[in-house]
Design a protein around this nucleic acid. Structure first.
Length: 492
RNA sequence: CGGGGUGUAGCGUAGCCCGGUUAUCGCGCCACGUUUGGGACGUGGAGGCCGCAGGUUCGAAUCCUGCCACCCCGACCA
């Protein structure tokens, strides 16, 4: 392992890839486009899962699990959805292998074991779930259904990148069924709000809530709500989406119910999801050239204690202090690891914990034993201070809150200073090339203009912000009248 | 999938153009000793189907063909 990361300025993309691997978050696997999520990376994902799961349950949802495979006939039922995902589906066609008669010791697919009907490995689960819901819903009394599932999905992407775009990824997908359009709309918007709240409070990532234009909408949705974040390199990242599906899936799967007036109607639907892509967002929002920077609310452990000693006797005394600090922190709800490995020297441990983004580091050495102090170091600012040991745990508790807040504020400042209003297309292109970030511009509302801008600049409309203020102007590209500004950016 | 690039020890690499002794160097790894407040030092040691499969040749890391993986740029996308 070489000592230093490639810097962000030198090669942002390389920096990201090296960081993911060196911080021990994930690595590429023997399977094309699929990653191995390593324990440290998975621990962060588990923290995200735990918070999201709690938030879903607080908003009335329950977890369930549906099959990995979707029979092709079900998959194709909702045409737009099927069409949207068709190009990236893995398909199971056989169910057995046999010894290859022409190739000793090798196996081949048994040609006699062809499936009657191909099975699509889910790229998303609307089809199998709505086919199931059909059997569960007869009356308005059966509604709403508010289900979430934690699962893996497969989308056969051409170009993959650890966490940001892998062929298989982990996510959660909520699938809800409602008696009225209004209720489904409220649900879709509510879950987008939940995502925004999670991103900001736990990941310390400021996000813009908005709706997608028709061309960026989820295949099969009538409206897609989203949260958009801005990465340090000025590119936008879609961090979560929540879809109002109307009655499309109910019609495709014939899910009707009798309402309280005795009339038959199709069920209204939503679906919403966030994925391991959030790991990518987390990394690219806060980390620096020394490695990962984790917000305290998601760090696998928030504090690490590194002992510095010259002999066993000193180590014993330090261990005792460390253990009492750990138990005090535990009662304050702070997680702490004592790095007592005798195989690495302190400097190596400092470097490793910085690389892995541990928010606070406590070093205890001989000088501290004399003075009853410790050295407390912040990962985010890389600053250190000597503090009295009896003030330590409360200081840590308070500091973690400060760090969480400051990471958010720093990211928010960056984001806010990278939303630029432009009035014409030259300005649009200049800002996109030099300053980067979001561009707030008038758009005539047509798909043609959107596609043309994408073609010319690679920038797409990330979203139309929620509660966007109306503002008469002229489309930045076509010059046609426009009633509001929308946000453009180059995106991941 | 289209264009470009790269695959040599766990990692990073030299050698490849112009085929020819035992494949270079650094980091890491192992043992012992000395060390420990920012990635320790010394001595000794282990580790290689030179991405995979064919071909050319007396001889291939080196030349040719195919395949695979990864990186960058496109199209696609959470």
């Amino acid at each position: 392992m070489s000592k230093n990361l490639t810097s962000r300025a030198e090669d942002y993309s390389k920096w990201y890839n090296e960081l993911v691997v060196k911080a021990d978050l994930a690595e590429n696997s023997a399977v094309r486009g699929c990653m191995v999520i390593k324990p440290y990376g998975y621990a962060i994902w588990e923290k995200m899962q735990a918070e999201l799961d709690r938030m879903f349950k607080e908003t009335g949802h329950v977890n369930a699990y549906f099959p990995l495979f979707v029979p092709k006939s079900l998959f194709e039922a909702e045409e737009k959805n099927a069409e949207g995902f068709a190009k990236e589906c893995a398909v199971v066609t056989h169910y057995r292998l046999e010894n290859d008669p022409d190739n000793e010791g090798k196996l081949r697919v048994d040609p006699n074991a062809k499936l009657e009907e191909e099975l699509v490995v889910r790229p998303t689960s609307e089809a199998i779930i709505w086919n199931t819901y059909k059997g569960w819903i007869q009356s308005y009394r059966d509604l709403p259904i508010l289900i979430n599932q934690w699962a893996n999905v497969v989308r056969w992407e051409m170009r993959t990148r650890l966490f940001l775009r892998t062929a298989e990824f982990l996510w959660q997908e909520g699938h809800t069924a409602h008696a009225t359009k209004a209720e489904a709309l409220v649900e879709a918007e509510q879950m987008n709000d939940v995502y925004a709240e999670f991103a900001e409070s736990f990941m310390a990532i400021p996000v813009i809530k908005g709706i997608k234009t028709e061309s960026e909408r989820f295949a099969g949705a009538l409206e897609t709500y989203c949260i958009e974040a801005l990465m340090q390199d000025g590119k936008a990242l879609q961090a979560g989406t929540s879809h109002f599906l109307g009655q499309n899936f109910a019609k495709a799967f014939d899910v009707k119910f009798t309402n309280n007036e005795g009339k038959l109607d199709y069920v209204w639907a939503t679906s919403w999801g966030v994925s391991t892509r959030l790991m990518g967002a987390l990394i690219m929002t806060h980390s620096d050239d020394k490695g990962l920077v984790l917000p305290p609310n998601l760090a696998p452990f928030q504090v690490v204690i590194v002992p510095i000693y010259k002999n066993d006797e000193q180590f014993e005394i330090i261990s005792e202090k460390a253990n009492s600090i750990i138990s005090e922190l535990k009662t304050l709800g702070v997680s702490c690891k004592f790095d007592k490995r005798d195989t690495h020297r302190p400097g190596a441990k400092f470097a490793q914990h910085e690389l892995q983004g541990v928010p606070l580091r406590v070093a205890i050495g001989p000088k501290d034993l004399e003075n009853n102090t410790v050295e407390l170091a912040r990962r985010d600012t890389l600053t250190k201070e000597i503090i009295q040991i009896d003030k330590l745990t409360q200081t840590i508790k308070d500091l973690l809150v400060v760090i969480q807040h400051e990471l958010f504020t720093k990211a928010l400042n960056y984001r806010n200073t990278h939303i630029t209003e432009v009035e014409n297309f030259d300005e649009f292109k200049t800002v996109l090339e030099t300053k980067t970030g979001f561009i707030s511009a008038h758009w005539d509302g047509t798909n043609e203009t959107e596609q043309k801008i994408k073609e010319l600049t690679k920038a797409t409309i990330r979203c139309i912000p929620m509660n966007n203020k109306l503002d008469d102007g002229k489309c930045v590209y076509s010059g046609q009248p426009s009633t509001q500004r929308v946000l453009f950016a180059k995106a991941y």
